[in-house]
Design a protein around this nucleic acid. Sequence first.
DNA 1: CATGAATGAGTATTCATTCAT
DNA 2: GATGAATGAATACTCATTCAT
Lengths: 211, 211, 211, 211
Amino acid sequence: MPKVGMEPVRRKALVDATLRAVGGHGSLTVTMSEIARHAGVSPALAHHYFGSKEQLVIETIRSLLRTLRADAVAALKAASTPRERLSAVIRVNFQAHQFAPETVAAWLAFYSEAQRSEEVRRLLVVYARRLNSNLLASLKQLCPDDRAGEIADGAAAMIDGLYLRQGLKSAPVSIESSIALTEGYLNAQLAAVAGAASVDAGRQLPVTREA
Amino acid sequence: MPKVGMEPVRRKALVDATLRAVGGHGSLTVTMSEIARHAGVSPALAHHYFGSKEQLVIETIRSLLRTLRADAVAALKAASTPRERLSAVIRVNFQAHQFAPETVAAWLAFYSEAQRSEEVRRLLVVYARRLNSNLLASLKQLCPDDRAGEIADGAAAMIDGLYLRQGLKSAPVSIESSIALTEGYLNAQLAAVAGAASVDAGRQLPVTREA
Amino acid sequence: MPKVGMEPVRRKALVDATLRAVGGHGSLTVTMSEIARHAGVSPALAHHYFGSKEQLVIETIRSLLRTLRADAVAALKAASTPRERLSAVIRVNFQAHQFAPETVAAWLAFYSEAQRSEEVRRLLVVYARRLNSNLLASLKQLCPDDRAGEIADGAAAMIDGLYLRQGLKSAPVSIESSIALTEGYLNAQLAAVAGAASVDAGRQLPVTREA
Amino acid sequence: MPKVGMEPVRRKALVDATLRAVGGHGSLTVTMSEIARHAGVSPALAHHYFGSKEQLVIETIRSLLRTLRADAVAALKAASTPRERLSAVIRVNFQAHQFAPETVAAWLAFYSEAQRSEEVRRLLVVYARRLNSNLLASLKQLCPDDRAGEIADGAAAMIDGLYLRQGLKSAPVSIESSIALTEGYLNAQLAAVAGAASVDAGRQLPVTREA
DNA sequence: CATGAATGAGTATTCATTCAT
DNA sequence: GATGAATGAATACTCATTCAT
């Protein structure tokens, strides 16, 4: 006996099932039947709610990004200095759930799908831009704008690369090491900027412009 | 009009066609027919020479890695100092052919496939290890072993991450910027090591051990 | 217009269609499409319900053997003496449906398949054993055990051989002749046993042990 | 360097290879490539000499029957009485080579093929008729014509049936048992005829009409 | 709300056969 | 005389999707 008000429950179950199935399988070649089985419903129901596999996948990516954004917002709120905010961003990206092999595998599959689906590509670009701008906002308070942009690009690339290697499973880079590596990058780059700044101190404004 | 001695010609044509087709399509869901069409032969011939799609894909990855290795060997030979060798490794990875959107897309597809095919995973792990050890060999001549390991991991991650972003196409990180970013990372890390070394100069051997 | 509860209907239709198609074609090289057409459904549905052609064939053999067993059980129940039971077994094997050219052709195809499929071989061995033991049970009540075994083997071989010839179509051995031939074999063998027994009467127990 | 006069050599090699391959595989689904490999030549050569797979198979059956006939002729020549000739026929059919699992499997495959190929059917019918007439010729010298016909049919069926069971491999009927069973059948039937004849002695001519 | 039933459109793979050399 | 090269046609099997219930 079908109950009313099941729609949000089913939608969430299907989205979660998709993430799990795609993650477990490592690609979007999972069948709708398998996804539906994970969610404990019939494949027909998945179509009923999402219209197509493509849409279900897109909703799943959206959901993943939503979570990531919420986590980032929460972490940023708890940080008080620019440097702390940078660490917060890094921590969020490497938190256990995101860095789990399953999730990483799903990310990979989505990146791959981005080659074909314009909408998926757009979503991933949005994610990439947000990561960059999160880093940039804090970095601009610690160094000149042009350097900030470079460092943000470098840090973002390193984060993504650490994900990629995690996807190969055999990579010996743990969560802690990943965080340490990224922090180390930021420290070294900021130190270099600071060193240059102190040399140039007579001609240039201090780069730290804490709001 | 069949001619003798076509086997190597066809094999190469098919491997190239696979790279192109997978790259263009962004995933291994390309059909054998499409690959064969790219190579100007019938799908049956692809099976005749490679036995299965899986094997054709594996040969294609092997071929890609072979090229990359040959390029690396050549570049390393032309470099004379450890620091130059590091730059050589970076340059090879970002050279135009490797960094072309098509090739990058193919790489992504292969990484995704690694989740399912043990053999593909093994090949990619070999590549990852080689990149690391290429960096490591030079770094160990410029800084203590433990730091060398960390810097190698960081640089490798950054390289892979820059690839990933390249795959999204909308990323504004050009070949030159990618190289600059990675070089910047190495410079900053090595500078940090050198700074620490000069501070510790009384207790520690100089880290530069140019052969 | 899909109706619920169709599964058993479709399964039966497909099994029947397989028997007909294999029988008509004389070998398992019939295509799934042809079988499905016989059953009035799509090839995809056959796969949906049976998973593979191999399984569909196996289910078909199982069904054929099930029918044969049920017929044998019924016929044996109606017989009261050992000799009548022997006749019942013979009659069942040569009844019109089993001896139809189509069914015989299917049997041949299955025997041939037994060379490749272990499971098919097992099923046919089960059938062969059952035929033997059906004959043996009655024969043991009419003659010594060792003779009973031989006669059972001979009768079973004759039955199978008559099938084989029926498969060639041009053989002029009708159902009635087939039955007469097999009955004749039993009569002659049992007569020989009886003759020998009466000669040995002084030294040996009577072999007839009617229950 | 191809040699002249190879044609008969190649033809024989291919026919033998076909028998072996079909026997080993248990059906005509063996590929031409496999047959050719067995014969140590290219598939193209098989076509060159036989035109098609169908023709190669037919030639193979023809060759098998030719051998069988030659063996029968030789065996019959060595026998002097009708009863000995019957034994000779039986012995030939169960001689080691004919009764080898591989050969039996090939026979089965041919019987199955007879459902589709008119020419194969004709060949097998010829074989069946010859077996019958070989038996019949001798039987007619030992009993009245109508009884001779029945006994020949029975004996032929039994021989074929023993082949069929041999094809299932698990059948415990050895060459010797098979011969004994068939001889036993003939003995019992002939004894029955003789018994009836002696009873009818006053009205009927003696059935033994040794030439 | 939910699903069993059903299929069309595809896809890798196989294989007998052809042909230029 | 012999074969490597090549393919068209076929076939089992898959899967997203639809629809009546």
